[in-house]
């Protein structure tokens, strides 16, 4: 149990998770990396240690420019999570980066979460810094 209010944070990824650890390590430098199969051109998401494009496919690591569009979203009004219950209402969204990866994140930098987010809206990554990594949130592009 958390005894100190200040220690309550969003649930952070495990940097030592074998498939996705390299992604989280790269976030320290505010780089959003993704993989592409050299043989088929398939963009792989989430990160993993093998290509799903082909058994003979080698994976190339690329860096996203960090811009994309909202594919879908919801405004969470009710959460029992000790961190998120203090944030409601907040926006969760699938974002399609221009290079292909579709990732789940939060939309920040908006005044009214109930009205200011739309499908198709252009967004860019807004890094939330933590000790060992940074979290790729997004904010609307003006």
């Amino acid at each position: 149990m958390m005894s100190d209010e200040k220690t309550i944070t969003r649930p952070l990824p495990r940097v030592n998770e074998q498939d996705t650890g390299a992604f989280w390590t790269a976030t320290k430098d505010k780089k959003f990396i993704y993989q592409q199969c050299e043989k088929t051109g398939e963009v792989i998401w989430h990160p993993r240690s093998h290509s799903t494009g082909s058994v003979n496919g080698e994976l190339t690591t690329r860096v996203s420019k960090g811009e994309g569009a909202i594919y879908s979203f919801s405004v969470v009004r009710l959460s029992y999570h000790p961190f998120f219950k203090t944030k409601a209402p907040y926006v969760v969204a699938y974002v399609d980066l221009d290079e292909g990866p579709r990732f789940l994140t939060n939309v920040v930098g908006i005044e009214n979460p109930l009205e200011d987010v739309q499908i198709g809206q252009r967004v860019k990554i807004d890094w939330e810094e933590h000790e060992e990594l940074a979290i790729p949130l997004v904010r609307p592009i003006d």
Binding site: E17, D19, P47, F84, L104, N106, I135
Partner: peptide, 13 residues
């Protein structure tokens, strides 16, 4: 799972 490790930070119920 690796997929979970990419998603739980967002607080999607």
């Amino acid at each position: 799972s690796p997929g979970d490790n990419m998603e739980t930070f967002a607080g999607q119920t």
